[in-house]
Design a protein around this nucleic acid. Structure first.
Lengths: 234, 234
DNA sequence: CGATAAGTTGAGAGTACTCAACCACGGTGG
DNA sequence: CCACCGTGGTTGAGTACTCTCAACTTATCG
């Protein structure tokens, strides 16, 4: 679980004793295929999933069958930290790509959090940063038009990938279909397509099937009304 | 701070020692007038606000000046629990009505959380439930039409008020203008007006200027696609 | 009782959706 | 090796939901 220790080492430095606690957490490794569900809405997971590699999405369905993707998770993210203290899942977690995950015993993780304030603060803080991203997504979906929404998601993924050490923010793989992008943005796949092509026509981005190159980061950020403060990075 | 102890007494029971810790938290009481700001975006609050009476809203502005209300807080809610561990505010907090609040020293609250796991779990859980509400709002804004969105907000406020002991879910004051409702729902005030009048015409609700009576709870919940599971009540 | 904020209504515009057809890429099997 | 097939991407046309703007009404407050 060195990946876990590395992820929790900010903002407060972990002590060697903390590393010991983390290393001793009961967990199992699992490999997931694209499309595989990790958590089902209304389920009662007893573990907490830490994403080692790959992308996951979290989504919920509304009455008419439409879907809202509420989060995209990158390596180094806890995918369902809420299940350490909430008994019943309120949404689904699904592997977007092939993934490696560590399933950590939820009760043990809570014990670890209260055995070491540094661990506890890092985990709690993780929950809080995630909530901040949710708030920005609400503003994005509720108050920006299709073009800005789409651009905002590209900016966020670029920055978060960069922060996670997965490469430059201006060039990355985005392993989502336009249908999935639409579900994340509150748009239809058709409208996502037109938004992406619009950004491309403006010279802000270039695309191949699943990779995005930002040609003009400042221009894209302006189109997106993107300010990374909500990510609460250091 | 008996209100605080009462709020944190679930899901785990607090011990007398916990009550002692809570009672000793350094805090100041403050009375707020409608419209007064408690926290400003990009500010660095050193306290954490517990709402004793009144309503607050939390909102953020996007580039073109539009506003998204990301949360409505009721008495017994922590209004800005994220500031115990995040240094910089990512949104504004504003009093919707006259409010009484307790401003608790953030560092002391964190210390209390790690001095007593029961307190720490209750606070962390509070953050997680809030995040669940954010997710539902994302789905609401992104994937439901104006009528359903509006109905959903009414259902949520009704249930949360009831749970907070403020009265029956079917009859309550909603001290928000249609402009504010629109900012919470990602709609314009005009469209909120039409949605509310539509729900009224269907016989689901009755309204006076600021109070709502639900005439047909099941009908309204069906129109809203409302399932209270995301509130994670006991 | 006037002033102001909020609510209501109508008409026209625009963004985003729906439906449907067509295209492009990747994978598979003959 | 290449044709076929399926998923996903692209495009156009028509529709519909929501917005904008503006006027008018109603409530509240000094």
């Amino acid at each position: 679980m060195t990946a876990l220790a590395r992820r929790l080492d900010t903002p407060d430095r972990l002590e060697p004793a903390d590393d010991t606690i983390l290393a001793a957490l009961p967990h199992i490794r699992r490999e997931l295929e694209p499309g595989q569900y990790l958590v089902r809405d209304q389920g009662h997971p007893k573990y907490c999933c830490f994403l080692l590699s790959g992308f996951t999405i979290r989504h919920k369905f509304v009455g008419d069958g439409a879907r809202q993707i509420v989060a995209i998770n990158l390596p180094g993210d806890f995918v369902d930290l809420q299940h350490v203290l909430l008994e019943t899942a309120d949404h689904n977690v699904e592997a977007l790509t092939a993934c490696s995950v560590a399933l950590i015993d939820a009760a043990a993780l809570v014990d670890g959090a209260f055995a070491s304030p540094a661990i506890g603060k890092a985990l709690w803080r993780h929950s809080l940063v995630e909530a901040s991203i949710f708030r920005e997504w609400m503003a994005n979906i509720g108050r920006r038009d299709g073009r800005a929404r789409t651009a905002h998601l590209l900016c966020e993924v670029g920055v978060r990938r960069e922060t996670a050490g997965l490469g430059a923010r201006a060039q990355f793989e985005l392993p989502m279909t336009q249908e999935q992008l639409g579900d994340a943005l509150g748009l239809t796949a058709v409208h996502v397509n037109r938004s992406l092509r619009g950004l491309e026509a403006e010279g802000l981005i270039a695309r191949t099937r699943r990779s995005v190159t930002v040609l003009d980061w400042n221009g894209l950020a302006a189109a997106a009304d993107f300010d990374p403060a909500y990510l609460h990075h250091r």
